[in-house]
Computed example of a mutant assay.
Amino acid sequence: MGVSKQAIASEFMGTALLLATVVGSGIMGERLAGGNVAVALLANTLATGAALIALIATFGPRSGAHFNPLVTLTEAALKRLAWATAGVYLLAQVLGAIAGVVAAHYMFELPLLMESTHTRTGPHQWWSETVASFGLLTVILNVAKTRPDFVPVAVGSYITAAYWFTASTSFANPAVTVARSLTDTFSGIRPADAPGFILAQIAGAGLAVAFFTWLEADTPEQHKHV
């Protein structure tokens, strides 16, 4: 059976609303913070974490609420999702992310798309994205197995924390990275820097899958009984 239109629409709309939140709260935070970058980042962080909880709870029953190519590729690699479905999800996520940037720009009377000039590159930034992505996928895979109803809160909480403990502010999402290269605002990243982030994110996700697989293979028998 093919993927439903409702699932595709959920991935598109969920990712669009996520990016509208990330970019819009970054713009609002920067405008209201009076030059205080920490306050602007805090506003950006809290809005993003809160939106993730709401959006995953909203769209989870319809599409799984991936909103992230790393999650989709992981599900396909673990044979929980058909590769054909994964391809459609990836397209919906990237297009949704770009639509979210356009929506945020229009709300704040900015050009609909702008090439970012925010430099985010170098080994420390790439390592930050590897760590951020590894942590995100580790949280998702393990919480989804043991407490699926808690996934929205777990993901929102992790991203809220990772904004602050990673030097890159935890993009941890290739679709988000592509879209944020199209906004020259607080949350932007230069297009030239995006490929390094994306490769680091994929590496982190791969490590998370390997770690999860190892944990599953070594699960004690007593942990399998209720």
Rank of each mutant, 00 (worst) to 15 (best):
R147I: 10
L78M: 13
A7Y: 02
A172H: 04
L19C: 07
A57S: 15
M1T: 07
K79L: 05
G204A: 09
H124K: 14
I98K: 03
Q6A: 12
L182Y: 07
F67S: 05
G34P: 01
A203M: 10
F134P: 01
A82K: 08
L81F: 06
V71M: 13
W214S: 12
S25E: 06
L32D: 14
T185W: 10
L46S: 04
H105D: 11
W214G: 08
F197N: 05
E115G: 15
A47W: 00
T138A: 15
A33T: 08
F186G: 04
A47S: 09
L73K: 05
R180A: 07
L141Y: 04
L136E: 08
L42E: 04
R80K: 12
V151A: 06
F12N: 00
L17K: 02
A47K: 09
Y158K: 06
E30K: 14
V102R: 05
F150Y: 07
T58D: 04
R120L: 07
A210T: 09
T48L: 04
V209D: 05
F212Q: 00
P69F: 12
R180D: 01
E129M: 01
L73H: 00
K5D: 08
A43R: 00
I98F: 09
W127M: 11
T119E: 13
L215G: 11
I8K: 00
I202T: 10
F108C: 14
D193G: 11
T15S: 15
L110F: 14
V131R: 03
L112E: 15
A217T: 10
G34E: 12
T85H: 13
A16E: 01
F212L: 02
A175F: 02
D184I: 01
A179L: 12
M114G: 10
V3E: 07
K5I: 14
A9Q: 08
L91C: 07
A167Y: 00
R190M: 09
P123V: 15
V155P: 05
G2I: 12
I140L: 15
V155A: 07
P174H: 07
S4A: 01
H118I: 15
A208F: 00
Q201S: 09
A104I: 10
E115Y: 12
P61R: 11
A103C: 15
F197K: 00
F197W: 14
L113E: 12
D218A: 11
R31C: 03
T15E: 04
P220C: 11
